[in-house]
Design a binder for these strands. Structure first.
Lengths: 161, 161
DNA sequence: CAAAAATACTTTACTCATGAATTAATTCGA
DNA sequence: TCGAATTAATTCATGAGTAAAGTATTTTTG
C-alpha cells in the first residue's frame, strides 16, 4: 500500500531514509572540508583561528561595540565560551572590554585599532579563499544551492527546540 | 576589462565574493543546525554523542573490525582523537581492542555484542531523525542538492593539501 | 644483516565548546 | 522600599578536537 502521491516507483521508508542520509553525509563532508581549509589557512597565514575570526567579524560589523551576551547570541555559542575567546583576544590587544556606564554588570567589547587592522587583512584573504573553495559551482549552481539551503534552513527553524 | 564569458551583468570580484560567502554561510548554518539536533537527541535519548555514534557506525559497517589508523582516516580525525574515543567506548564495554597477530604495533577494533545492540537501537532512531530534519526538501530537491554537493566535493578534493 | 626510515599508536599540551554553578548588579512587585 | 527574581558575566568540570613529540615495531635499503 504505497503512500506516494507521485509516480516515483520505490517510495518506501527505507529508500527515503537512505536518500536523506546520503544528502546529510555529503552536506557534512563538504562543510568539514571547507572548514578544515579555512582553519588551516587562518593558522598558517595569520596564526589565528576560525572562532577568533568569527568573533572579530561580528565586532567589525558592529563598530559601536557589542555586549558579551550579544556576541554569544550572534555567534550562537555559550557565554562561557565568549568569555574565554574575549580574554585571549584582549590579552593580545586585539579587542577591548569597555565598561558600560549604564549597567555595571556589562561591558562593551570593541576591536582595538590593531585588531581592526588585523581583521581587515584577514577578511580580505578569507573572502578570496571562500571564492576559491566554492569555485566548483558556477553562478547558476550557487544560486540553486542557495535556494535549496534556504528551504532547508526554513524547515529546520520550525524544529529548533 | 571584464573576465566574464556570460551575459550576467555584474560579474566583478566583489559580487562573486559576496555570493560565495552567502552560500558558505548557509551551508555552515544548515549543517550546524542539523548537527545540534542530532547531538541533543543522541544525548537525551541514548546518553551518547555524535563522535561515539560515528565511530560505532564505522565498526558496524566493517564487522571484521578496523585498525585505529583506518578509523582515523574514515572519521577524518586525528589518531590521538581516535585513541581517546576508543578508550572510553572500551571502558564502557561497547568496543574491544583485539591484538593483531600479524603486527604487534596495531589493533583490530570491533563492536562487542553489547556495543552492537546499542548501535542497532541508535541507528534505527538516527535514520528517522535525519529523514525528519531533511524533510524540508522533497525528493527532487534532495536529488538536486546531492548533485550540487557532489560537484562541490569533487572540486574540494582537488584542493585538499 | 644492521642501520635508517617508515608505520601504528599513545601521550601531552593546547584550543574550543558545553552546561551548571557562582557572583554581582539591576529590576520588579507587594 | 525591601526582598525576590532576573540578567550579565565568569568559573569550573568535562568532552572533543588538533599538532607535535614519544615509544615500539616493522620494513627498507646499502
Amino acid at each position: 500500500m504505497p503512500t506516494s502521491t507521485t509516480v516515483r516507483p520505490s517510495n518506501d521508508a527505507r529508500s527515503d531514509e537512505h536518500e536523506a542520509l546520503r544528502v546529510w553525509l555529503r552536506l557534512l563532508t563538504c562543510t568539514n572540508l571547507v572548514e578544515a581549509q579555512l582553519r588551516t589557512r587562518l593558522r598558517t597565514n595569520f596564526d589565528s583561528t576560525l572562532p577568533r575570526f568569527d568573533l572579530m567579524a561580528q565586532l567589525d560589523r558592529h563598530p559601536e561595540g557589542l555586549k558579551m551576551s550579544e556576541l554569544s547570541r550572534l555567534l550562537m555559542v555559550t557565554g562561557g565560551n565568549v568569555t574565554g575567546l574575549t580574554d585571549k583576544l584582549a590579552d593580545e590587544g586585539l579587542v577591548e572590554r569597555r565598561d558600560d556606564p549604564r549597567d555595571r554588570r556589562s561591558f562593551t567589547v570593541m576591536l582595538t585599532p590593531a585588531g581592526q587592522r588585523q581583521f581587515d587583512r584577514m577578511a580580505r584573504e578569507h573572502g578570496q579563499w571562500v571564492v576559491g573553495l566554492l569555485a566548483g559551482l558556477d553562478h547558476a549552481e550557487k544560486q540553486r544551492m542557495l535556494k535549496l539551503l534556504d528551504r532547508l534552513k526554513a524547515h529546520l527553524s520550525t524544529i529548533s527546540d
